[in-house]
């Protein structure tokens, strides 16, 4: 026995120059998508701006400069270097408001995505693994949530809970829940009959361990992609609620709320509406591009060997 083991040890030599690590492989696929890299770049800039808003914003976002109502951006006649992107109807600096607004948008995105993902994954894991009535009940509830137009449902929740940023976040998280549940359930159902799950069962693993330690890490790739893409949906929905007056309340510099306040000046002062709109557009676009790159990098079906 001993000598044969020694022989086969020497023989079972591995590939010594090990293949590239998972992170480098991930980056190789991700960086192939130029749009995704651009999206990632913009997103990083946005995060930095939001974090450093206190230091780099030229003005206080809610301070009203009484002598500077509706000052146009600097490159337009009558513009001033004090207010690069102009001011709004009560004399607040739009650039500073956008910078602070980025904080709210990212905050909403993070909270909504993590909340919806954690709850959704938990429900999806157990529904998919246990099946039977647990599955039926969970999926029918999710079907009901999915059968309403999402914004309408969010409005209903906010109407019940009362307007405000926190309640808007809860409402948006609830309407995103079904997507996570369905996605998780589908991947759990395809993983649970694989041999490695059976071997863990033969080794004596209980349901909780099987679901969380054995199965969950193998279902993460599509969930990460979904999380990235729903980050932008959350920002968009929060802006929509803010625009309808049901989300963040003035004077918070939330982008949707800024849009709503600027509605009446659309014809007289285009910059008041345009810049928050552009901010939302570019942010959502960047995150979606990034999500596409993640999908290319993580989805094994799209990988070439």
């Amino acid at each position: 026995m001993t000598d044969t083991t020694a022989v086969s040890t020497a023989n079972a030599a591995p590939n010594n120059q090990a293949p590239v690590g998972p992170w480098r492989e991930f980056w190789a696929y991700f960086s192939e998508n130029k749009g995704a890299v651009a999206g990632l770049g913009f997103f990083v800039v946005l995060v930095v701006v939001a974090l450093l808003a206190d230091f780099i914003a030229p003005h206080d976002p809610i301070e009203q400069y009484r002598e500077h109502f509706l000052v146009p951006p600097v490159w337009v006649d009558g513009g001033s270097w004090d207010f690069l992107l102009g001011t709004d109807a009560v004399g607040r600096d739009i650039l500073s408001r956008l910078m602070f607004g980025a904080r709210y948008s990212l905050f909403i995105g993070c909270i909504v995505v993590s909340g919806a993902a954690v709850v959704g994954i938990a429900i999806g894991l157990f529904a998919g693994y246990l099946g039977g009535w647990v599955d039926t009940v969970a999926m029918r509830v999710m079907d009901i949530l999915l059968s309403y137009p999402p914004l309408l449902l969010a409005l209903v929740f906010v109407a019940i809970l009362g307007p405000g940023l926190e309640n808007a976040i809860v409402a948006i998280a609830v309407i995103q829940l079904p997507h996570y549940v369905r996605l998780t359930r589908a991947s759990v159902m395809s993983e649970r009959n694989r041999d490695y799950v059976t071997s863990a069962r033969v080794a004596g693993a209980g349901t909780l361990r099987l679901v969380t330690v054995t199965i969950l890490p193998n279902c993460m790739a599509p969930i990460i992609v979904q999380a990235a893409l729903s980050f932008s949906t959350a920002i968009l929905d929060a802006a929509a609620l803010g625009f309808l007056g049901m989300g963040a309340q003035p004077p918070l510099p939330e982008w949707g709320t800024m849009l709503a306040e600027a509605r009446e000046f659309i014809l007289r002062a285009w910059w008041v509406v345009t810049f928050p709109g552009v901010a939302i557009l570019v942010t959502v676009l960047a995150i979606n591009l990034m999500g596409d790159g993640l999908r290319d990098a993580l989805d094994p079906k799209l990988k070439r060997s």
Binding site: R194, D195, Y196, T198, S199, A203, P217, N218
Partner: peptide, 25 residues
């Protein structure tokens, strides 16, 4: 099992795979 490509958890290191039965029992 027959298929060594599906019988090992792709997200666990070899050491973890081997130690798991002991950890559980």
């Amino acid at each position: 099992f027959q298929d060594p490509y599906s019988s090992l958890n792709p997200r666990q290191k070899v050491g973890t795979i081997l130690a798991e039965p002991l950890l559980i029992n």
